[in-house]
């Protein structure tokens, strides 16, 4: 029994790391209706930025997070400018509705993500960077039969803060209202005077801030910061987003937790080689049986 409790705790902590990434990912998808393939690299850049800050100044974690938030916002705005804005240069109705115009950003964001990853590899090499022990957030905490770490608590706190904060921003601020308007109907939003371009830039800034913070937290949690680190979590976050119904942030978070728990528990019964199949299995099952996400039904976007 203790064994299963421990596996459950591990699963929740893994799921939490997926949820951290999925939040920003889903926010951007919700507004643009297109996958931002560079989100994994924003996550990686966040981790590297955090590592650089820690190795140069060794500040407390909160200061590192603030610095990484700034880097994330900067990267997000740059990403939008380079990979997304050029494909919105026509604002007539046909272009705005054109799937081809929108989906070409799949390629441009993928291209940018490859460039960013290779650049990091050239600059830092592809090996794991060593994370100073003092910066790691993996001090064990024994809770009866189960062992968790201080990192689990920090990640839980940050994820909860992100989720609640984001809901507040989306419902009670001007920026949030325009993000919701654009995600519901960009053309309609434009006609009632919402500055669509500005809103999209804001979305990228906020989504990338969340992505960068996720990167630094997970990087310090596992002590594994390397150029390729964004790929696997990106896939898991993508699956969680699809399972959650593509544009529902709370749905993505719940599904991320579910995914983590199922992966961890699956290891208890089958070889761990198969635990990666859990994510892909969920993806296939969702697409076949729950094309609108496992919570189903019509939901408000974002």
């Amino acid at each position: 029994m203790d064994f299963y409790l421990q596996q459950l705790a591990i699963g929740l902590s893994v799921g939490m790391t997926y949820a951290l990434i999925a939040i920003g990912f889903t926010l951007i998808f919700g507004v643009l209706n297109v996958v931002n393939f560079a989100h994994g690299e924003v996550y990686t850049i966040g981790a590297f930025a955090g590592l650089l800050v820690v190795t140069t100044f060794a500040p407390p974690l909160l200061a590192v997070l603030l610095a990484v938030l700034a880097v994330g916002a900067f990267v997000g705005v740059g990403l939008e400018r380079l990979a997304f804005r050029p494909f919105r240069r026509f604002s007539d109705e046909a272009s705005l509705k054109s799937r081809a115009m929108r989906e070409s950003t799949l390629m441009s964001s993928l291209a940018l993500s490859i460039i960013a990853r290779e650049a990091l590899e050239i600059a830092f090499g592809s090996r794991f960077q060593s994370v100073p022990v003092a910066a790691m957030i993996n001090q064990p905490i024994a809770l009866g039969p189960v062992t968790i770490t201080n990192g689990d608590l920090i990640i839980l706190g940050v994820a909860a803060l992100m989720l609640i904060g984001l809901q507040y921003v989306l419902r009670h601020t001007q920026v949030g209202l325009s993000i919701r308007a654009v995600s519901n109907n960009p053309l309609g939003a434009k006609y009632v005077g919402v500055d669509v371009d500005r809103t999209i830039v804001w979305t990228f800034a906020v989504g990338s801030m969340l992505g960068a913070v996720a990167g630094v937290l997970v990087g310090f949690y596992y002590g594994a910061i390397f150029a390729n680190m964004g790929f696997t979590p990106g896939v898991k976050a993508f699956v969680a987003m699809v399972m959650g119904g593509l544009s529902s942030i709370p749905g993505a978070v719940v599904c991320a937790l579910l995914l983590g728990v199922c992966e961890s528990l699956s290891t208890a019964f089958v070889s761990s080689v198969w635990s990666d199949m859990v994510a892909y299995g969920f993806l296939i099952v969702t697409l076949i049986f729950f094309p609108r996400g496992i919570f189903g039904g019509a939901r408000e976007r974002v």
Binding site: F3, Q6, Q7, I10, G11, V14, Y222, A224, T232, P233, E263, S264, L265, T267, A268, S271, S272, V273, S275, D276
Partner: peptide
């Protein structure tokens, strides 16, 4: 005796299984 995929991010489920 068990195998895992290279580059596995989280070994903890496997470690708990070994410890059992």
């Amino acid at each position: 005796s068990e195998f895992f995929n290279r580059g596995l991010a989280d070994f903890r489920p496997l470690i708990a299984k070994i410890a059992r």
